[in-house]
Design a protein around this nucleic acid. Structure first.
Lengths: 207, 207
DNA sequence: GATGTAAACGGAACGCGCTCCGCTTAGGTG
DNA sequence: CACCTAAGCGGAGCGCGTTCCGTTTACATC
């Protein structure tokens, strides 16, 4: 039903059945208009009709390109998240490979928290209730954490723990930690690191 | 602490400024109608207008009583959650007090998972994005977990860890674990217990 | 009872996300 | 170039959650 068309903007290097020129033009127009509107007012004050009007496009076109509001938000985030994902897989340590798993776990949390901090509103919209992780980057994060946890914390269910850790970083949850509970970003980061350390069996101080 | 007699409440044992008879009658009608409809079709197929019509009440009345859709869902859940809350505070062990904190943590997870399992859809509706824990029972759970964690896992930030653990039990997250990832309830329960044990420094295979 | 008034009422109306469907057009084919 | 067809288009329209506001009513006071 929601076939998210999130292909590369310009060059069709894959074998997509072909994208018509007008379709490509409209997608770019929509992305440009949406980016501008969101930067100006914040996504919660930008309706789908606003975007369509600003892009000189019918609402039908908007929805055919991006599926729904969440899909559009995801597309707007695409660039930022892709950078982070690349850093995870092939970047420099400690985010990328080359250091102990426990250290990479800490780095993941801190890096991802920065990302969330910058784009909370967009991320909240990109993750509608009941559709967690659909097509989004979450499955990659889950796999990443699972692998790291298998190394760093072999005594727990790595898949489960990966989800549990990710749950704390979910946009809505982070928003609640920061605004609802009034926690500083530093506290959340420290909390993450403490949790990870505790799981990876770091030496505890005894009295 | 002087008791100036400003107005004598008749049978109003609470401190509500007075609830008019028609208001009370309508609230009961709404709750009855909503309960019936939700049992019959599931909340996702019950609109606010449906409830208003079935209760022979204007939509305005519905909203004045319950605020919004989430508030109505919360009210429908009230009975079930209250039982659980009572069990936490003054019930029999291991849910209630009387056993080590680590054991109560495990019991909390298992009990709450049962609750969530029975009422996921309602709980998802009761927790709209960005309004986590507003007026709901979450702050109580958070406090409960915080206190237990201070006992069981003194080496981590108890408040933070409470939130992290709760995040995994959030309705939307649980729905994803169960339906999205296809995990069995048993696996989730075991995962919870494993995590809690790991945090509470249960004996590992080294001194 | 008569009266005043704040609370409660109901449903029309709004804005939103999203769908539907008749029309248009890009781009391959002969 | 003319033709064909499926992909693309746009915007009217739907159903929803929510709000607004003129009307009604419960209840205290006289």
């Amino acid at each position: 039903m929601m076939e998210a068309v999130l292909e590369l903007p310009q060059f069709d290097s894959g074998q997509t059945p072909h994208e018509r020129a007008d379709a490509a033009r409209n997608r770019l127009r929509i992305l440009a208009a949406a980016t501008e509107l969101v930067e100006a007012r914040g996504i919660e004050h930008v309706s789908m009709n606003d975007v369509a009007r600003a892009a000189c496009v019918g609402t039908g076109t908007l929805y055919r390109r991006f599926g729904d509001r969440a899909g559009l938000a995801l597309a707007l985030l695409d660039q930022h998240t892709r950078e982070f994902q690349d850093a995870l897989i092939s970047g420099a340590p400690p985010l990328g490979p080359g250091v102990p798993a426990a250290e990479r776990l800490r780095a993941f949390g801190e890096g991802y928290l920065d990302l969330v901090e910058r784009h909370v509103e967009l991320l909240v919209v990109a993750e509608p209730p009941g559709r967690i992780a659909d097509g989004g980057p979450y499955s990659l994060y889950a796999t990443h954490l699972t692998l790291l946890l298998r190394d760093a914390a072999p005594h727990v269910d790595a898949e489960f723990t990966a989800q549990a850790l990710l749950a704390m970083l979910r946009p809505a949850q982070h928003l609640y930690s920061r605004r609802g509970l009034g926690w500083s970003l530093e506290r959340v980061r420290a909390g993450w690191c403490g949790l990870v350390d505790s799981l990876s069996g770091e030496p505890r101080e005894s009295p």
